[in-house]
Amino acid sequence: MIRFSLRIPEDLHERLTARAAADRRSLNSEILHLLEVALTDPGTRAGSPGSDPTPPVPLHGKPDSSPA
């Protein structure tokens, strides 16, 4: 897995943190989930301008990293 730093506005961080808590996910898992959903949107079809012709690869690891 690739690791990198990302700078985001405070208000976006607050929204992501709240959404992660509501979905019982870690912040990292929530961001990965949202990115995967956005990149597998049916509106993003293969062959459309700017689309990636390769099918998305499912994410590995636990979908919910909160304690049981």
Rank of each mutant, 00 (worst) to 15 (best):
S48K: 01
L27T: 00
D41W: 07
L34A: 07
A46Q: 00
G61N: 04
A21F: 09
H33P: 07
T44N: 08
P58V: 03
H13E: 12
S5W: 07
D23A: 05
D11H: 14
S65P: 03
R19E: 03
A46K: 03
L59T: 10
P55F: 02
H13C: 04
E14L: 02
P67E: 14
G47P: 00
L35G: 10
A21K: 11
I31G: 01
S26A: 14
L16Y: 02
E10N: 08
P67W: 13
R24T: 14
P56K: 02
R3F: 07
D11R: 04
N28E: 14
P63F: 10
A68Y: 05
R24W: 10
S51G: 04
P56Q: 10
L59G: 12
P42N: 03
A18F: 09
P42R: 00
S26G: 13
A46N: 02
G43E: 03
P42W: 01
R19L: 13
G47L: 00
V57R: 06
T17L: 00
I8W: 09
G50I: 11
D41H: 15
I2C: 13
V57E: 08
G61D: 03
A20I: 14
D64G: 06
L59P: 10
E36L: 15
T17N: 02
D52L: 11
L34W: 03
N28L: 08
E36S: 14
R3T: 11
P67F: 10
S48E: 02
V37L: 15
E30Q: 15
E10L: 05
G47A: 04
P55Y: 01
K62L: 15
I8F: 11
L34R: 09
S5I: 14
L6F: 09
L59Q: 12
G50C: 12
I31W: 02
K62A: 15
S26Y: 10
G50N: 11
L12I: 12
R7Q: 15
S26K: 09
D23S: 07
L6S: 07
S29G: 14
V37M: 15
T54V: 00
V37G: 10
E30W: 04
P56T: 09
L27K: 01
T17K: 03
I2L: 13
R3L: 11
S66W: 01
T44C: 09
F4S: 14
S5C: 08
L34S: 04
T40M: 06
R15Y: 04
R19A: 12
P56E: 07
E36H: 09
I31E: 00
L35W: 07
I2W: 11
S48M: 01
R7L: 14
A21I: 12
T17F: 01
S48R: 02
P58C: 06
A68S: 08
G50M: 10
H60L: 12
P49T: 00
F4Q: 13
L27Y: 00
L16D: 00
H33I: 04
A20C: 05
M1Q: 04
H60S: 15
E36K: 07
P58M: 06
A18I: 11
L34N: 03
K62V: 10
F4T: 15
G47I: 02
N28A: 13
E14Q: 13
A21V: 12
P55A: 02
E30C: 15
S65V: 00
T40I: 10
T40V: 11
R15Q: 06
S26F: 11
R25K: 03
L27H: 00
G47Q: 02
I8S: 08
